[in-house]
Design a protein around this nucleic acid. Structure first.
Ligand SMILES: [Zn+2]
Ligand SMILES: [Zn+2]
Ligand SMILES: [Zn+2]
Ligand SMILES: [Zn+2]
Lengths: 158, 158
DNA sequence: TTTTCATAGGTTATACTATAACATTCCAGC
DNA sequence: GCTGGAATGTTATAGTATAACCTATGAAAA
């Protein structure tokens, strides 16, 4: 991840979430909001039990449903994605647009970058149509080496 | 899934696996082969513990590593894919070509169709290049309604 | 031949992920 | 004030995956 003003990421996404929740008349309760804030702390993917631990520390309860219910809501609203490959969750960086999330997952440092790809890729859409399948949600995940880790592997003095 | 000669699917994939294993000098042992045969029995995705139960019934051992080791091998060789969304496994229907597996997963009947999509979609590849990310594997998963289930939902007498 | 090394498999235990089920609280609308 | 739905509290359990260590096998090196 390139250096950037992460405070800006946080404000931007949180504001948009707030706005969308109001617009859609959904209940953006304290625990839900706080879960999103925790996930927004970094662009890394966080496992459910990591989130739960944080929520517990902040007084929101210690039982698994606390985390999973918050996550269900946030995913439903499109504020959070699940990275299936990692069984972990990330705040969406493009909550203002409907999209097919696409993740670049580094097998070395496990960093996760969400890239901005349009709704369902054309090739998949074509295949789905041919099969009579109606796509409602889709996602893409790619595993490989991030820029930084690739540089390390290249280094002759490794 | 349309009606088809499934025995033909099985023979075709098994032969190709046999051939590729010999070519790559990897050890296609009885338990590995039998695990693939079990997964080939249908195009549905099977959970690891379902596979384990079958392997156990056929005398290959009852402990989780039995199944997970066989799956690790089969995935490594490209004979099997994991459907991340379902935490379940399917035999690859296109073992003769390197590809990005793409699955159409019905949210109603949980059927899984693997569609034949080329290596990493162009859009994702572009994004990855821009980020300096080297993709090694990628996959796509789409959730929605299969042809049959869509028909049912349409039915006025449902 | 004996040693060595790598791969596969056996076995036990445990960690991690997720949901079911039911009780309780809260609040908006009637 | 009653009522119904949404959110939360609480307990229990189901489901997924890996760690760790040990044994067997067989082919290559010494
Ligand atoms: Zn997103
Ligand atoms: Zn990395
Ligand atoms: Zn495939
Ligand atoms: Zn279906």
């Amino acid at each position: 991840m390139r250096p950037h003003d992460h405070g800006d990421c946080i404000r931007r996404v949180l504001d948009e979430a707030e706005r969308r929740a109001a617009e859609d008349r959904v209940n953006f309760t304290p625990v839900r909001r706080h879960a999103l804030e925790i996930l927004l702390e970094s662009h890394a993917a966080m496992p459910a039990y990591g989130l739960l631990k944080r929520l517990d520390a902040d007084g929101f309860g210690s039982q698994p449903p606390v985390a999973y219910r918050a996550l269900d809501f946030l995913i439903e609203q499109g504020f959070v994605h699940k990275v299936e490959r990692l069984n972990a969750f990330v705040a969406c960086m493009y909550p203002h647009e409907t999209h097919t999330p696409a993740f670049l997952i580094c097998r070395n440092c496990r960093s996760v970058a969400e890239t901005c790809v349009a709704p369902t890729p054309a090739a998949l859409l074509r295949e789905a149509r041919a099969a009579g399948f109606a796509i409602e949600r889709s996602m893409m995940e790619a595993e490989g080496l991030c820029r930084d880790c690739a540089r390390e592997e290249d280094a002759p003095c490794d």
